[in-house]
Simulated assay, not measured.
Amino acid sequence: MTRTDIAEAWAQHCAEGWPRFSSPHEGQLMTLDTVISGCAVFYLDTPEGLDEQRIGILKDCIDDLDDLTSELDGDSQTYFLRLRQLGERLLATAIRP
């Protein structure tokens, strides 16, 4: 996974507007979006990449998304699955041989 891959995934995510949906977990989903987005910006702005703390946070966010996205449908599910994929791509940059 390269910086270009992350930059493209980030640009695609930014191009999509916040989905319209109703869920008791909307606040939590918004927080997950904010945190993963923050990790993407940090990664793209920092030559060293992600630190251990952000790696742990990303793992937790992906686990939370796994728990919450199954109950969503349509555009909202697509949005959060794409967010999850962005998180996975960020984690892939942290895997060192």
Rank of each mutant, 00 (worst) to 15 (best):
M1E: 15
T2C: 09
R3N: 14
R3V: 08
T4Q: 07
D5T: 11
I6E: 03
A7R: 08
A7W: 02
A11H: 08
A11N: 11
Q12P: 11
Q12R: 15
H13C: 05
A15E: 12
G17Y: 02
P19N: 02
P19Y: 02
F21C: 05
P24M: 10
P24N: 12
E26G: 06
Q28E: 13
L29N: 09
M30F: 14
L32K: 01
V35N: 04
V35I: 10
V35R: 04
V35K: 05
S37M: 12
S37A: 11
G38I: 04
G38Q: 07
G38L: 08
C39D: 00
C39M: 05
V41R: 14
F42N: 04
L44H: 06
L44F: 04
D45G: 05
D45T: 14
D45P: 08
T46K: 05
T46S: 09
T46V: 10
P47I: 12
L50Y: 05
E52I: 09
Q53L: 15
R54Y: 06
I55H: 04
G56M: 05
G56K: 06
I57H: 01
I57F: 05
K59T: 12
D60C: 03
D60N: 08
C61V: 04
C61H: 02
D63Y: 08
L65E: 03
L65K: 03
L65N: 00
D66Y: 13
D67L: 10
S70P: 11
S70H: 14
L72F: 00
L72V: 03
D73M: 14
G74T: 05
S76Q: 04
Q77G: 00
T78L: 13
Y79P: 00
F80W: 01
L81M: 13
L81W: 11
L81V: 14
R82K: 12
R82I: 09
L83T: 01
R84V: 08
L86M: 01
L86P: 00
R89H: 11
L90A: 01
L90S: 03
L91I: 03
L91Q: 01
A94H: 09
I95V: 13
I95W: 11
R96N: 15
R96K: 12
